[in-house]
């Protein structure tokens, strides 16, 4: 046995908690999105099932499970099934190195930023394989369009992550958050605002949110890469999208908004120093702060989605290659100057 039993049990517990939280973002986001869209469009939204319709996502999931297990006869069956699996798997795997609080990082590693970049960019394979294999011209075109969008914006996304890593001088997310501390001046968003801007815009594009939601532009394409998908396989693409959104929000909080640090107040200064449960309370408050920031960011994402119109494909590509990549490369140079001086 190479690894002790306690480590394996600890990993399983941590992985269970993190995966549970990551997957539970999906029903929360579905419900919040429907309620907020109703609020913006002056409708009521879901209200029949449960109090204020809170059980609606559960009913949706049940319906997704019970739908007819259809697959197109001309499809390449292996890739057809593996597409949605990859698109759920890649953000879930990337969560292995995301520290919500220091003890909740399933795999403790110095290279957590690299792990997150590597696994989160695997999601393109899922939609490319799904669109290619499902034997439909609309799916193929949608998959090509979406994958060229995703790889175009991935350059600026990883360039702006790189810019922040150069400022902190480490790949380790836990160290990055500890370096930012409770002093708001040291937070990444104030150290390099340009990198934050490019990261935010490319995070919107990477998770296919509205100004850039060409993958599912239902008025232009029939449905994009998931035209031939139904039931749970269709829902898995959406789960992958929402979990990916939660992942990029977590990375954004860690890199730019001080992670589990409360602004202006050091958490340990609030608690009595020699009380038995002080460490537990410290972690609990830190987790609460992190979740509050996460929910705030996701709320901003939802509001953006229901406020903005959609770009055209040529505008999207011109903006990505012409403006955003140049800005993110400039932000790398700015970070190098800040770090050295």
């Amino acid at each position: 046995m190479i690894v002790g039993t306690s480590e394996i049990v600890g990993l399983i517990i941590k992985a269970g908690i993190v995966l549970f939280l990551a997957l539970n973002i999906v029903p929360i986001m579905v419900y919040a999105e429907r309620k907020v869209s109703a609020f913006i469009q002056r409708r009521i939204g879901p209200e029949k099932i449960g109090i204020y319709g809170v059980i609606q996502p559960l009913a949706d999931a049940l319906k997704f499970i019970l739908k007819e297990a259809f697959y197109p006869p001309g499809a390449n069956k292996f890739f057809y099934y593996i597409g949605p699996m990859i698109s759920v798997l890649s953000p879930l795997l990337a969560f292995m190195a995301v520290p919500l609080i220091p003890i909740l990082q399933p795999i403790r590693t110095e290279l957590s930023a690299l792990v997150v970049i590597a696994f989160s960019s695997l999601g393109v394979w899922g939609l490319l394989l799904g669109g290619w294999s499902s034997d439909n011209k609309f799916s193929l075109l949608g998959a090509l369009r979406s994958s060229s969008q995703f790889i175009s914006y991935e350059v600026s996304l990883s360039a702006s992550i790189l810019a922040m890593l150069i400022i902190y001088g480490t790949f380790d997310f836990v160290k990055i958050v500890e370096m930012q501390g409770e002093n708001i001046v040291k937070w990444g968003v104030l150290l390099n605002p340009l990198a934050f801007l490019t990261f935010f815009i490319s995070a919107l594009a990477e998770s296919g949110r509205i100004p850039f939601d060409l993958p599912e532009a239902e008025a232009e394409l029939v449905g994009g890469y998931h035209t031939e998908y139904s039931g749970m396989k269709f829902a898995m693409f959406f789960m992958g999208e929402f979990v990916h959104l939660a992942l990029t929000s977590c990375v954004m909080i860690i890199l730019f908004f001080g992670g589990w640090n409360m602004p202006f107040i050091r958490i340990s200064s609030l608690l009595p120093p020699d009380y038995l449960f002080t460490p537990v309370l410290e972690y609990a408050i830190g987790f609460g702060v992190f979740s509050a920031k996460l929910l705030l960011l996701l709320g901003i994402f939802i509001f953006i989605r229901w406020t903005w119109p959609r770009f055209r494909f040529d505008q999207l590509i011109r903006f990505g290659w012409g403006t955003l990549i140049l800005l993110s490369l400039i932000s790398i140079v700015i970070s190098a100057i800040i770090a050295v001086l």
């Binding site: 499970i65 297990a69 795997l93 795999i107």
Partner: peptide, 24 residues
């Protein structure tokens, strides 16, 4: 181990769908 846990989730979703839904 972590990879196996998340693979079980991803395959399990399709498997549950395959078991519980009616055949096409």
């Amino acid at each position: 181990i972590y990879f196996l846990i998340s693979l079980v989730i991803a395959v399990g979703l399709i498997f549950i769908h395959y078991i519980l839904s009616e055949k096409a």
